[in-house]
Design a protein around this nucleic acid. Structure first.
Lengths: 153, 153
DNA sequence: TGATAAGTCTACTTTGAATATAGGAAATAA
DNA sequence: TTATTTCCTATATTCAAAGTAGACTTATCA
């Protein structure tokens, strides 16, 4: 569920959201800043663009920008852009028709029913957490840590 | 997160819990009843045994049995027996020391903080759902469906 | 108009994990 | 001691993830 793609994608988005003095970013700069293989990042940003999370401009002065504010981009949307579903079970996907070959009747399959609950719980967390929330959590922990150090001094 | 192993494992356990007139089961029987490759199932049941979910006896008259009651076996425990962690992020695992190489400071890594929330939500569902619950859900849906059919007649 | 700076696309390699399968070893009951 | 059954080790196969290479397209600006 958390592939390198998702992780790199979130890191790149985090970097863009955090660096508020710029609004257009070069692939190469993001790659270097976040330690992501450049060629790999190319493909990742493209996926985010096709999901409507990023926008881009070619040519000199071009680059990638956030298509929405960090508070309007959910972690769930980012992860789904890469992984498809949060919990990979064919029979959970949209068209309830697609049942797993082996679970006879999808409607009464216990595994499916339980995993559907699990999926809902996961979705509710990830769809309610935005990029802005993620950065804020991180900043909060950073300050907490800093205070401990200050106290130690 | 849901591998064939987990699915087959849950199916096998469901079969054993459901078939209450027996308490010892042969690998071959379970495999046939649930349509699971026998050799593959061997490995799966072994994992469940090593996790304390099943017990076994070799030789004639032997076989596998549930080591606890269906109400004492959680879906979370089963899935974890196969997948290790519910949400695969090295830095979430037990020894907080094991951080992902790329997320500089694990304590303040936003991705890790968010995924930790997600993991908690997922765990709370799967660790509070037992095998017995799973079967009951399934049975409930089966009856609901049956009533619809009866009504139609 | 042409040089250059970007993103975009296609194809490929490599690696590792998931899904099995085969065959025999160990244990146990009759 | 033989049949039965789980347990163990090794191997094959397949597929997706991770990463790389190189050419293509689009836009800017001089």
């Amino acid at each position: 569920m958390i592939s390198m793609r998702s992780k790199y994608g979130l890191k790149a988005l985090g970097y863009m959201a955090r660096t508020s003095d710029k609004d257009s970013f070069l692939i190469a700069d993001i790659a270097q800043a976040e330690g992501i293989p450049k060629k790999f990042l190319e493909a990742i940003l493209l996926i985010l663009k096709n999901s409507g999370i990023l926008s881009s401009r070619k040519g000199p002065g071009g680059g990638y920008s956030l298509a929405k504010s960090p508070a309007a981009i959910t972690v769930g949307a980012v992860v789904r852009a890469f992984e498809g579903d949060l919990i990979p079970l064919p029979c959970l996907s949209e068209s309830a028709s697609a049942s797993c070959p082996e679970c006879g009747d999808a409607d009464t399959c216990g595994i499916r029913l339980v995993m559907s609950d699990a999926d809902k719980a996961l979705s509710s967390v990830l769809d309610s957490t935005t990029l802005a929330d993620m950065l804020q959590k991180s900043e909060f922990e950073r300050q907490k840590k800093q205070q401990v150090v200050d106290f130690a001094i």
